[in-house]
Write a protein that binds this DNA or RNA. Structure first.
Lengths: 159, 159
DNA sequence: ATTGAAATCGGTTCGGC
DNA sequence: GCCGAACCGATTTCAAT
């Protein structure tokens, strides 16, 4: 994992469909060398896949909420986690420190659907409470901040 | 935006590097027809880009936290938002309902770095308080749940 | 680990339906 | 809007270093 790998990762986080030829131009290697390096990043799990970024509002998922899920006295976290996995509207799921053992992100078409999903979450065995925060605007998400500084602006000359 | 478009979106959310030939096989159209449809999805903003999915722990970002950012009496949300944008460790930023006007996701190499970033967030002009929840485990993130049910299991025959 | 060449396969355009 | 063909460029493999 050297500087070239980091630049490849940055390039593929910015454009997951960049061609090997394009990546080769960026890092200054042949496309076959890039092919091999990317294959290694994939098989080693550093790059686990590629995803199209889709605007949720344009596919009818206009409502987003962050929901804290608090287990009761005898709530089993492992079972709760499995139940959360089974709810398709739950897009992300974090196990966190605190009384709320989980924080999940829910994406639904409408507040009516949110209502239904929250009911389902509260109905999960072992869940005592949920606490919902409605998202008013997603300013940015999954922003890729570069690992490798790159050529960038040269440091000031100190005379 | 018909069922074919939705299946293309699903396929590209599952594999952002799927070739047009591959997509054509999935939806049962020619690759040129797929090319045209995907181009339209891109230019209409439904698909805004493609990203490699990278394992944060394997690139040295082992600590994740969710941070609520609460403005003071005279805090300007627009200015705070701009300041949050400028913090590279902030990977996602949501404007939310409630006293905490923003919830951000922070990704850093260590708890020391988290400490530094939280200091920077609290130092933003107009910010009164932050409330930090440390992520113990990311069970899943940005999970793409299909829009289109697909062929799936055929409905039971009703005699 | 990288190269350059060779062969294959996919991307892209276009005429026609 | 979709197809099919043709062209071109990229992917992928491989021997050599």
């Amino acid at each position: 994992m050297d500087a070239v790998d980091r630049r490849l990762i940055d390039a593929l986080r910015a454009n997951g469909r960049a061609s090997y030829a394009e990546l080769a131009r960026i890092v200054g290697l042949s496309s076959s060398a890039v092919h091999e390096r990317v294959a290694k990043l994939e098989s080693s799990g550093v790059i686990s896949g590629y995803r199209a970024v889709v605007d949720p509002t344009l596919i009818g998922l206009g409502v987003t909420a962050l929901v804290g899920v608090e287990p009761g006295e005898n709530g089993n976290d492992t079972l709760i986690a499995a139940s959360l996995d089974a709810v398709p509207e739950v897009e992300s799921c974090y196990a966190v420190a605190g009384a709320e053992a989980f924080i999940v992100k829910v994406r639904v078409p409408s507040v009516d659907d949110l209502h239904l999903v929250l009911g389902r979450l509260r109905g999960i065995d072992g869940v005592a409470r949920t606490r919902t925060t409605v998202v008013l605007a997603t300013r940015f998400e999954m922003r890729p901040h570069p690992l490798e500084p790159g050529p960038g602006v040269p440091a000031e000359d100190v005379p």
